[in-house]
Computed example of a mutant assay.
Amino acid sequence: MRYLLIFWAGPLALFWGWYFLSLNDISFGTAFFSRQMHDLVFAVYGNVLDMDPQAIPPLAARACLIDTLILFAILAFRRRREIRAWFQARA
Rank of each mutant, 00 (worst) to 15 (best):
M51F: 02
D39P: 05
L4D: 07
L14T: 14
L4V: 11
I83L: 11
F32Y: 11
T68R: 04
A13T: 15
A43E: 02
I83C: 01
F42W: 04
A63D: 08
D50K: 10
Y3H: 12
A43M: 04
T30M: 04
L65M: 14
L75Q: 06
Y45P: 00
I6C: 07
A89L: 13
A43F: 02
L71I: 12
A60E: 02
C64Q: 12
W16M: 13
W86C: 03
P11G: 03
H38R: 09
M51G: 07
L12E: 14
L71R: 09
D39A: 09
D52K: 14
G10V: 03
F72T: 04
F15W: 15
A91K: 12
F15A: 14
L40R: 11
P58F: 04
R62S: 08
F77A: 00
F28S: 05
D52R: 11
F32M: 06
R84P: 01
F33T: 00
R90L: 11
I66T: 13
L5K: 08
I26G: 03
L12G: 15
W8V: 15
T30I: 03
I6W: 09
P11F: 12
I6A: 14
L40E: 02
M51C: 10
G10S: 03
Q36L: 10
A76N: 01
Y19S: 09
M37S: 12
W16P: 06
A76W: 01
Q88V: 08
A43K: 13
P11D: 05
P57C: 02
A85Y: 04
A89V: 04
I83V: 09
G10L: 06
F33Y: 08
P53M: 00
M51S: 05
H38E: 05
R90C: 04
S22G: 11
L40F: 12
S22A: 15
G10M: 00
V41Q: 00
Q36R: 15
M51D: 01
V41R: 04
F7E: 01
P11V: 02
P58K: 07
P58H: 02
L5T: 09
R35W: 14
M1G: 10
R80Y: 05
L5A: 06
E82Q: 15
W16G: 09
L21W: 08
I6H: 12
V48L: 14
Q54C: 05
R2M: 12
F77I: 02
N47H: 09
F42P: 01
P11I: 00
F77D: 00
L12Y: 13
L12T: 15
A85M: 09
L40N: 12
N47E: 08
P57D: 00
L71G: 08
G46A: 07
Y3P: 01
N47Y: 08
L59K: 09
W18Q: 06
L40W: 12
I66M: 08
D50H: 14
P58S: 07
S34H: 04
W8D: 07
F32C: 00
Q36G: 14
I83S: 03
W16F: 15
Y3C: 04
M51P: 01
V44I: 15
G29Q: 09
C64K: 03
S34P: 01
R78L: 07
R84L: 05
R81G: 13
D67Q: 13
Y45I: 13
V44W: 10
Q36W: 06
D50Y: 11
F33D: 02
A63E: 02
L49P: 01
L71V: 12
A13K: 07
F77T: 03
M37P: 00
E82W: 11
